[in-house]
Design a protein around this nucleic acid. Sequence first.
DNA 1: CCTGAATATGTCACCAAGTGCCAAGCTTGG
DNA 2: CCAAGCTTGGCACTTGGTGACATATTCAGG
Lengths: 176, 176
Amino acid sequence: MRAELAARALELFTERGFDETTVDDIARAAGMSKRSFFRYFPTKEDALLGELEATAERVAQEISARPPGEGAWECLHTVLRAWEAHINTQIEVLRLIESTPPLRARLLQKRDEARALIVESLTGRGLSPLEADLASVAAGAALDTVAREWLRTGGSADRPTLTDQVFAMLRPAFLS
Amino acid sequence: MRAELAARALELFTERGFDETTVDDIARAAGMSKRSFFRYFPTKEDALLGELEATAERVAQEISARPPGEGAWECLHTVLRAWEAHINTQIEVLRLIESTPPLRARLLQKRDEARALIVESLTGRGLSPLEADLASVAAGAALDTVAREWLRTGGSADRPTLTDQVFAMLRPAFLS
DNA sequence: CCTGAATATGTCACCAAGTGCCAAGCTTGG
DNA sequence: CCAAGCTTGGCACTTGGTGACATATTCAGG
């Protein structure tokens, strides 16, 4: 059901635009009522961005589960490299988000909530609040840069390689 | 008028909460109608965050006006250090934003628009799109970290010093 | 096969944010 | 004094989002 709604939403958003699509349109296209839509997604934007918090939790868990001796930046790099493809999905969706302010805003908000989770995991690994904050925000910045650079290349760049490059370029000097 | 509305909005938000305050309340408190409120601010959130795009433009201009030989990171550091106090204002406002998701979301969105402006200034200084993107996103991350750390200390830390520390810690390795 | 509880859905009424439209007021310069 | 122009208020409207209640569907146990 969620998947059905998400699929219809993507269709309608791409062909008609986000603002020109009403929640009722999406719901009806999926064969249900507006009220039921809001039982699957808390906001209209989440029809596209709904899986993010779930992956955020898994990312935070994986970070906590890593060997304690590992450096924080390597840890973030490794875990996020594995999830990058799952966060920055199809180019169509990325383009839509990039060109639609409300979607972009909601994405940033969810990224920020994810960041808060990751901060917890990092402080659990012994970092100070400032360090954890700094590391998490840098990692988020890295992913964002990867997504935009990938968009700039029209989707032709190799994302894992790009991720490695960006993480290397952005590595904070103070992290082990 | 804008200032009057902003002041009333801050009062009402702090004493009653953001969600519990209606735009009509703010407008009436400032002696005008809801319709006129929206002639001064495009959204309810902007009653608190309205000055940001103006300072973003000035920041971008100052970056463009800096000596061309200067390193990009020093440039960002210098300009943003000067504006930091103007971006992260009173602790009351910061706390309110931090504890109110819609305000936080709108702030992130505006920060992102500001980032886009700064990217233009940086590419004008000879950086590649990827580099400019990376530098701007790192600088935004730095300011964000400063604000949160300052909040953590309850407003007692020295912000310029903190800004210097964070910019030093986050300096991307690849920038001159 | 029946029944009763849990869960999913629809309908309706409602609130608040935001916008377009038009009429009325106020301010200017001539 | 008057006319052009900007500011404001009021009104109607759309849409996102929520609460309440009724109905349908599912599914377990007797």
